[in-house]
Structure formats: C-alpha cells, structure tokens
C-alpha cells in the first residue's frame, strides 16, 4: 500500500481498481493507482499463475500488466490515470474476442 506523502499538494481523480473506487493523484500512473488502492498484485503470471505487482515503475519489467479500460496486458506504469479509468487484474493470458474488433 502506498499513500500520499505529508505536504503533498496533488489534485486527485477517481478511478476504479478491481471494482473498488479509489482517489489517486491526477499525475499517477495506473500502476500507482493499484498501489494506492492497496492491492498487493495486479496480475497472475501466464505460466504459473503467480501473483505479481509493479516492480520497476519505468516500463522495463512488464510485471505491472493490467487490463485498462477493457484492453488487456497494458503496462500500467506507462498509462497515466484519467477520471473514470477502469483498472482490472490481468489473469494469465489475455482473453480474445474473435467477433469483436
């Protein structure tokens, strides 16, 4: 769990993380929103189903993959939040909607 530091002067927006509504700093990434929401992990690995959370926060490790606004496997640390964003756990491999495109 991450929290705002004391003396932080950050505007906030409301986003949804795994169904929970959370207030996060407006300049946070979706990965940061996950941490503010108090989630330990945001994905389960494709091979072993192990829980993983954001690790490097700079787009290198790909451990922060989440489903964001319906699009799976996005590097959540590279996506800035916007009001109303829906961030969901990435469970193993992505689903494919063959008849939607």
């Amino acid at each position: 769990m991450f929290r705002l530091r004391r003396d932080a002067d950050e505007a906030t927006v409301e986003v949804e993380v795994d169904g929970r509504t959370v207030l996060v700093p407006a300049n946070a990434s979706a990965a940061a929103a996950v941490l503010v929401a108090g989630l330990d992990s945001i994905r389960e690995t494709a091979v072993g189903g192990a829980p993983r959370g954001p690790y490097c926060l700079m787009g290198v490790c790909f451990d922060c993959l989440a489903e964001i606004d319906g699009v799976p496997n996005r590097q959540s640390c590279m996506v800035p939040v916007r009001a109303g964003m829906r961030i969901r756990r990435q469970r193993r491999g992505r689903a494919v909607q063959p008849n939607e495109h």
Partner: peptide, 13 residues
C-alpha cells in the same frame, strides 16, 4: 528506483 518514481510523479510513499 521504482519507489523513487512514485514519489517523483505522484508524491506517493
């Protein structure tokens, strides 16, 4: 570095 980025970008600790 990741924790530092959270502090830099969003004031999070």
């Amino acid at each position: 570095g990741g924790a530092q980025i959270l502090l830099k970008t969003a004031g999070l600790v």
